[in-house]
Each structure stands twice: as C-alpha cells, then as structure tokens.
Write a protein that binds this DNA or RNA. Structure first.
Length: 339
DNA sequence: CTACTCAGGCTGCTTGAGTC
DNA sequence: GACTCAAGCAGCCTGAGTAG
C-alpha cells in the first residue's frame, strides 16, 4: 500500500488562486502584508485541503531545522525531569527537542543516536556528560555543530567549552559546614564508586569542606557498595559519644542510613545527623524528613538552552566558554534539626 | 557489455528582487 | 501596497557520456 501524498503549498496556491510565494507569505511570514481577501482564501484553502507545512523542506530552504538533539544516559529520575524542563525551555526559544537515551551508557547506542541527530541536521546538541564518550563528543565539536554539555566535569578543555554543571561539590562542602556547625565530632561521607564522576565531585566538595570547617572533627570516607549499613552505624555510635554527621551520596543512600538508624533506635538528629542530595520525594516522605539539596532543574535547563542559543547564533560573550556551575538549594528537615 | 563519472532534475519551501 | 518570479537550499536519483 502506497503512502497517500501529502498536500503541498502548490496545491494550496492552486486552490486559492494565488502563487506559492503568496501562500508562504500568508502562512509563515507575518511581517509581509497581504490583502484580507487573499489571507482568507489562502487560509480557507489550507484548512479545506488539510495542508501541513513540511518542516524538512522548510529546513532545507532556511538551512535551519529548529530542532535540538538531547542525549541523556537514561529517561528515568533526574534525567527525565531535566529533559522535560529542557523541552519547555527549547519550546520557549522556538525550537523542538528530540530526546534520545544512550541506553544505560552503551557506546554503540550513543553513536547511533548521535548519527541520527546529525543526519537530521539538528541546529544544536545538548549532551549529558555521562552519556557521552570523549572521542564521540570531540567529533561533534569538530563537525561544527553547536554543543552544550550538561554535567561534564573534568572534560578536556577543547570539548567541554561552556558546560552547565550542577554544583554537587559546593553542596557537599556546605553539608560539612552544616554538620560542623551542629556540633558533630565526626563527619562521614557515604559514597558510591559506581557513579564515578559524580562521586568524585561530591568528594571534592567533602574534602574541601573538611579542610575549611572540619578543624578537630574526625572524618571518614566509605563506599556503600556491599556495605552493611546497620553494622557500620552500630560501630560508629560506639566510637563516638557526641553527634555524628553523615553526608550521603544521594537520598536513596540517605534513606538506607535512616532505616538502619531507626532499626537501631538511634536518636535522630540528637546522635546522628544526616544530609542527602537530590531532594527526592523519599526525602520529603520519610520520617523524619531527610535534609537534602534540591536540584534547580529550571535554572539548569534555562542556562543550557540560553548557552546553546548563543552558540547557534554564533554570538560570543566574554567568558562564554567557561563552565557554569548551577548551585543547589539546601532544604533542612528533621535529620539535622528538631522540627 | 560493464563500470564509472558527471550533469541535471527533482523534492517543498523560503525569500530578495521585481512587477503591476 | 499587494502580489509574483525565480534562485537557492541538500541530497538523492536518473540518464547520458566515456573508458576499458
């Protein structure tokens, strides 16, 4: 069965008794004046024939597709929310966002999706640092397609121009300060080596925080992979008579700590103070609520789209190519403060 | 006859220049 | 002012021409 032929601008022009240029002017160029009668005829013909603009042809003519490609590691959780906000911001800028997942860090899928987006001649790309390899990303930069990286920490300078990164390091630094201010005699970081780059960022912040605010406070860095959290907490409580603080990799780790602490009847926040990251719904719904760092999705999406729009327009500003850090907001709940 | 190159046509639309 | 003409966009396809 052959696909029915789509109505084109030519048929609309014939039906309205005008040229195709006039149809284009009426339907797509608000600035060009046409008579009321012509506008009426064109709009009526387009409606009756069911005309739908062919954006591929329009892109061909304008040498612009008004399409942005997004590659993220997965569709769930933070990535899904980020994609949603990027889509809204792209829409505000007059662009359409095509979202692809690299299928859980699969380099083959990453390359295939990227190829599809480049074949479609997207006007620009937004890629999450965890979804991309250095070489693939370098090939995009060399091809001249405007690119903005999200969370591209520690990338080579020639490709990570103008990455928009979440301030996980800053959040961890401040977490240490909060716990030190609350009188903790020991502060521990419970990390996740499985998420290497993100874990590194948190550690940078944690270590800086300890150097800055941890005078006289003992510190410990632990990987939660395969860790018996209940046994770990029991030991920790035996070692320290005064309050102990924990900076958790994220709210999921924080929840595991909270559950184990509740099971052991540890006084929270009297003996144990806990801070997570992400401000997940579990942080709000657990008891007590977990103090956490809220991710400013809207800010990050706005910054990424603005940066990409500047790159597409080929505008350069002073300092434009430096990395931007988007700060997180601390939400204090019952795991650090009596409520 | 086969294999290859190259020019021109085609697609749907936009847009600067020109006409009435 | 209102409208039309025609070039041009990128890439695929087709047919003519040429070499071996």
């Amino acid at each position: 069965m052959t696909k029915p032929k789509q109505v084109t601008i030519v048929e609309v022009a014939e039906a309205a008794g005008v040229s195709i240029a006039t149809v284009s002017n009426v339907l797509n160029r608000g600035g060009i004046r046409s008579s009321k009668e012509t506008i009426r005829k064109v709009e009526l013909a387009a409606e009756q024939l069911g005309y739908r603009r062919n954006t591929m042809a329009a892109g061909l003519s304008r040498n612009k597709t008004y399409e942005i490609g997004l590659i993220i590691p997965a569709m769930a959780g933070y990535y899904g929310q980020l994609a949603e906000h990027l889509q809204i911001e792209a829409h505000h800028a007059g662009y359409h966002l095509s979202v692809f997942s690299s299928g859980g860090f699969d380099p083959d899928i990453e390359r295939r999706h990227l190829e599809v987006l480049l074949q479609r001649r997207v006007d620009g790309l937004i890629c999450h640092g965890l979804a991309m390899g250095f070489e693939t990303t370098r090939s995009i930069v060399n091809s001249g397609t405007p690119l903005v990286l999200i969370n591209g920490w520690g990338w080579p300078e020639d490709i990570a121009t103008g990455a928009v990164n979440l301030g996980f390091a800053g959040a961890c630094l401040q977490s240490v300060k909060v716990l030190a201010d609350h009188g903790c005699e020991a502060i521990c970081y419970l990390g996740s080596k499985r998420s290497k780059v993100i874990d590194e960022q948190r550690l940078i912040g944690f270590n800086a925080g300890m150097a800055q605010f941890g005078g006289g406070v003992s510190q410990e860095i632990v990987d939660t992979m395969g860790l018996d959290i209940e046994a770990y907490l029991r030991d920790l409580m035996q070692q320290h008579a005064k309050p102990v603080g924990i900076v958790a990799f994220d709210d999921h780790v924080a929840l595991r700590v909270l559950s184990a602490a509740n099971k052991l009847h540890i006084d929270i926040p009297g003996r144990l103070k806990l801070i997570g990251i992400n401000n997940d719904y579990i942080a709000k719904e657990s008891y007590p609520g977990i103090s956490s760092w809220d991710i400013p999705y809207i800010d990050q999406a706005q910054m990424a789209i603005n940066k990409l729009m500047h790159k597409i327009a080929n505008k350069t500003e002073s300092g434009e190519d430096r990395e931007i850090e988007v700060p997180l907001t601390f939400i204090e709940r019952g795991t650090t403060k009596l409520q």
